[in-house]
Simulated scan of single mutants.
Amino acid sequence: MMKAIELRKLTTEELKEKLKELKKKLMNLRFQNSIGALGKNSEIKETKRDIARILTILRERGIKL
């Protein structure tokens, strides 16, 4: 889980790259959950929140996705 303060220190390009990584991670977590191999269900929730934090920061900066 990343804190908003840490994310604000990153450049816009780094944030976009992190967003791509987190979306891939979320897809993999959902797949693992569907086959019953996911250990911590809270990991999905944390990943979704990290994605939301990044999107919020990008919107604050006025960046088009």
Results as ranks from 00 to 15, higher is better:
I44V: 14
L7S: 00
E46W: 09
T12N: 05
I51V: 15
K20A: 14
L10G: 00
E17S: 07
K16P: 03
E60N: 10
K20N: 12
E13N: 11
E21T: 04
N41C: 07
S34F: 03
R49L: 13
I57L: 11
I5L: 07
L22Q: 03
T47Y: 09
E13A: 03
L29A: 06
R59G: 06
E46I: 06
N28T: 04
G39L: 13
L58Q: 02
K16W: 02
G39P: 05
L7R: 01
L10F: 01
L29G: 02
N41M: 11
T47N: 11
I44Q: 11
E46P: 06
S42G: 09
K20P: 04
K45R: 09
K64M: 13
K24Q: 15
L26K: 08
K9N: 08
L55N: 05
F31S: 14
I44G: 08
K20D: 12
K45L: 10
K23R: 14
G36Y: 03
I51C: 04
E13C: 03
A52K: 12
L58M: 03
L10N: 01
E60K: 11
G36V: 03
S34T: 12
S42N: 09
K24T: 04
K48F: 02
K48W: 12
E46S: 10
E6H: 15
F31W: 15
I54E: 00
E17D: 15
M2Y: 12
L38T: 11
N28W: 13
S42R: 15
G39F: 12
G36S: 08
L29S: 09
K40C: 08
K20C: 04
I54T: 02
M2Q: 08
I51M: 06
K9T: 03
L55C: 02
K40T: 15
K48Q: 13
K23G: 01
K20E: 08
M27H: 12
K23N: 10
K20H: 07
K18L: 08
N28D: 14
I5P: 08
E14I: 01
